[in-house]
Amino acid sequence: MKSSIVIADDHPLMLKGMTNYLTSLNYNIVGSATDGRSAYNLIVKLKPKIAILDIRMPHMTGLEIAAECKKNDIYTKIILITFDKRQDVYEKAKELNIYGYILKEFAVEEIENCIESVTNNEPYLSKELLPNLEKSYTKSDITALNKLTKTEIKIIKYIAENKTSPEIADELLISSRTVDKHRSNIVNKLKLNGKHNGLFIWATENKDIF
């Protein structure tokens, strides 16, 4: 059985379309809601593995739901669907450890890859968002790269492309376990504090320097 999922969107057609689409792909949709408060109550009650949330809904936004889940130690992985390309909104999502952040206009074509990535504990960000995010790397980021091996730099490049550990392993002809060990070494060298999505965020924000 695939991961349990709750879906919430205040646009009925979007909600129905996404629910029907994922159901057709045999995903386990355990609940749906048209407002944020109902969505949060479903998450508390059902504790799904994944919640796919519209970022702007009545009563509670997707970000507010994520904040409540974080505060109350609810480990549902949240995917936000949004029209918003603003840097400050994305930064807030990062602070709340949002696992997926995809644009609504690409939601149907991206959602399956997003869910697969999130299921493997790897964050997913719409590639279309990257040009809209400010470059925030510093001299210290560039210096940090000098600590990495050629293989580690290759792995960071693949991470920036939203590739999973098994996909990276296939590209480099090594085992997934070896990739995971490299990822751990990179996190330590870059001093990323072990956040679950810290390496992915660093890789996407600094991809122009490697």
Score class of each variant (00 low, 15 high):
I5W: 11
V6D: 05
D9L: 05
D9S: 04
K16I: 01
K16V: 01
T19Q: 12
N20P: 00
L22A: 05
L22S: 04
N26D: 13
A33P: 02
A33C: 03
D35H: 10
R37I: 02
R37V: 00
A39D: 08
I43T: 08
I43E: 07
V44T: 06
P48K: 08
K49M: 09
I50F: 01
A51L: 09
A51S: 14
D54Y: 04
P58T: 03
H59T: 07
M60C: 01
G62Y: 00
K71T: 02
N72R: 09
I74W: 05
I74L: 15
I74N: 03
T76V: 06
I79S: 08
L80C: 05
F83H: 06
F83N: 11
D84M: 07
Q87Y: 13
D88P: 03
E91W: 13
E95T: 05
L96R: 12
N97G: 07
Y101Q: 10
I102A: 09
F106W: 04
E109G: 00
E109C: 05
I111M: 09
E112T: 15
N113A: 13
V118Y: 06
T119M: 06
T119C: 06
N121E: 12
P123F: 05
L125K: 07
E128P: 00
E128N: 06
K135T: 10
S136E: 15
S136D: 12
T138H: 09
K139V: 14
S140F: 14
D141C: 13
T143W: 11
A144W: 10
L145T: 13
N146E: 12
E152F: 06
I153K: 14
I155R: 10
Y158W: 04
I159M: 06
I159R: 08
A160Q: 03
N162D: 13
N162A: 07
S165G: 02
I168T: 09
I168H: 09
L172H: 04
S175L: 02
R177W: 01
R177Y: 02
D180L: 13
K181D: 08
R183Y: 02
N185C: 09
N185K: 15
I186K: 12
K189Y: 10
L190Q: 13
N193Y: 14
N193K: 15
G194R: 12
K195C: 05
G198W: 15
L199N: 06
F200C: 07
F200L: 07
A203W: 08
T204H: 08
N206S: 15
K207L: 06
K207C: 03
K207H: 11
K207V: 05
D208F: 04
I209F: 12
F210R: 01
F210M: 04
